[in-house]
Design a protein around this nucleic acid. Sequence first.
DNA 1: CCGATATTATTTGTCTGACAAATACATGTC
DNA 2: GACATGTATTTGTCAGACAAATAATATCGG
Lengths: 250, 250
Amino acid sequence: MQEEPIIKSSISKQIADQLRNSIINGRFKTGERLPTEDELANRYGVSRATIREALKRLAAQNLVRSRRGPTGGNFVNQPTHEELAESLSGAATLLVSLGSMDIEEIVDARRVLQGSCLKLAAQHAKPEQVQKVQAALVRQKQVGISDEAFCHADVAFHRALVDAADNSMIRFVMYTTIEALVPITNMVLSYVKDRHEIIAIHERLLSALEQKREDELEIALNQLLDYLMESFRLAQIQRSKYQKPPSGSN
Amino acid sequence: MQEEPIIKSSISKQIADQLRNSIINGRFKTGERLPTEDELANRYGVSRATIREALKRLAAQNLVRSRRGPTGGNFVNQPTHEELAESLSGAATLLVSLGSMDIEEIVDARRVLQGSCLKLAAQHAKPEQVQKVQAALVRQKQVGISDEAFCHADVAFHRALVDAADNSMIRFVMYTTIEALVPITNMVLSYVKDRHEIIAIHERLLSALEQKREDELEIALNQLLDYLMESFRLAQIQRSKYQKPPSGSN
DNA sequence: CCGATATTATTTGTCTGACAAATACATGTC
DNA sequence: GACATGTATTTGTCAGACAAATAATATCGG
C-alpha cells in the first residue's frame, strides 16, 4: 500500500479535507486559532496560496473565520444556527432556481413536515415562543408595508412557528423548507395584491396554537398552502398573458 | 450614494457572492463554462489569485467544477442529489460533533419527521422503490459483514425508505436527519454486538410498507428509535466504566 | 507616575510573474 | 489511415513581494 498513489483531486482540496477532519475530530477545537498560513504552508510543504485556497473552501462552509493582525489568524468557527440556516436555505433556493425541485413537491413536503411540526409546537410551545409568533403577525399586519417587508415578516412568522416546536434538528430542516418557498411567495405577492387572506389564515394558526388545537392547526395549514398553490397558478396564467411563452427555449 | 464605500468583507468573498448570484439568476446557466480565470481577473480588475480564492469558495459549495486543458475551465455545476445530500449531511455531522444538537433532539425529530415520511411512502411507494428497500435489508442481513458495512447498509435502507415517499424536498431534508444519526449508530454498534433486534424491526418496517399499513409503520419506527436510544444509554454507561471521566481534560 | 501618541511586529489580503500539468487539436510520419 | 508528436490553452502550484489591519510596545509630555 503506497502512500497516496492515485490522487486525482487537487492538493488544496485534500488539505481542506484534512483540516476539516481535524476540526470534526476535535484536534482543532472551536474558537481555537490554527497555525498561521506560513506555518501551515511549511508543515504541508506547499505554498501559501495553496493553503489559502484550502482555507477559503472551509470559509465558504463557515468553518473558519479569519482576522488580521498580531492576535489574528484563522479561527475555527462554531457556526451559529443562523449561519447554518442561511447556508442551508442557500442550498435550497439554489435547488429551486436550478429547477431540481418543483413547487408541488415543496408544498407537499411542507404540508407533511410542517404538519408534524405544528403538532409538536402545540404540545411544547412556551408562552414566550407563542408571543414571538404573535409579534411577527403584528408586524405583518401593518398597513402600507412593502412587499419585501411583508415577505420578511412572513418568514419570521413561520420561523417563530417552527421555533415553538422547540427542537434544533427540526428547526434546522424546517427553516430550509420555508426558505425554499420564499421566491414563490414573493412572486405570488407581486400578482395577488390582497394580503387579507394570508393574514386571516395566519391569525387562525395563531389562535389554534394558543388553544393547543392540533386539528385546527392542520386545517389552517392546509388552507394556507392550498391558497398559495392556487395563487401561484393564477400568477402563472397572468404571467403567460403578458409575456409570451418561450417557444424555443434553448 | 457612492459605489461601495463601506465594504468590510474581502474582495474574494464579494466576487464569490457576485458569481453566485449570477448563477442563481441564470446569467450563467448550468453546465456552461465561465470565463477563464485570466479574463475574470481582468474583468474585475483583480489578480488571478483573488479570482481563484473566489472560485474555490464556490467549489466548496459544489457550485462550480474545474477542468484543465484547452476545452477546460470552470463550469457551473448542477449539483446532483447525491452531492447535495453529501454536503447537507456534512453540515449535520458537524453540528452533532460540535455539540450543537443533542441526541434526544435528533431522535425526536426523526420520530416526527420520518413518521410523516413513512405515511407518504405507504401511499406513494412504487414497486421498484419497495424493492430497493428490500435489497438494502438483504445486504444488511449478510452474516459476517463488518460494522462499517452494516452501518452503510443501514443508511441505504433508511434512504430507500425515504425515497419511497417520492418527494425531492422530503428526501433532501430526511437524508440530513438520517446522516446526523450515523455517528451515534456507529457508536452503538460497537458496543451492542447483536444486530438481530435492528434487523427484526427493519423487517417489520418492510412488511408494513408492502402492506401499506401506516399504523404498523409508525409503531415499528418508534420501536426502532426507542431501541436506539436505550442502546445509546447503555453504551454511554459502559463507556464511562472503562474510560475514566475526563476530570481535568486539558 | 500617567496618558496620549507614535512605532513596531505580526498576520492576513492582494498582486505579480512564472512554471508545471493536463488535455484537446493539429501536424507529421510511416 | 493509424499512430506518434508537437503545440496551444487552461487550470494548478509556486515564490516573493507589498498593502492593510491591528495589538503590543515604546516614546514623550504633563
